[in-house]
Amino acid sequence: MTEQRLAVPSDAEQLPALTRFLQEFWSAARLPPAQALPFELALEEVFMNVVQHGSPAGTAPRVEVSLSLRDLKLTMTVEDDGPEFDPLAAPPPDVTASLTARPVGGQGVFLVRQMMDAVSYQRVGARNQLRMTKEITRSSRNRSRG
């Protein structure tokens, strides 16, 4: 089992550092590059949710991301010490709505739920914890190292 952690303040400027953290984990574990998308997207969506909706004015909760690979099951956990907020409680957007009726927000968490095998929220002590898991498949032939 491989596990890595990174903690950052909930500030949009930290997004590139988080993305790099994920990409480095991905290449160190030699996972198929084409399957990184759900995790890259989930990391951005969940982190930006904390920045935009989980950080009361003047505060920057601490956000801790952990990646844990067991066999080929990858679990990404995003925790923050901001106010209690369950992003999974929001209703999904109406994907059949027309161009003019489609709401502008609410797509991010919906996409994460679609892409992951499992997503769960828990309030653990004074922290929000969102856990996402997905099985990585080795079906395609591995690319050469580099």
Partner: peptide, 9 residues
Amino acid sequence: DYVSSAGLR
């Protein structure tokens, strides 16, 4: 190469 909900918006 990549688009998130911020890009979809």
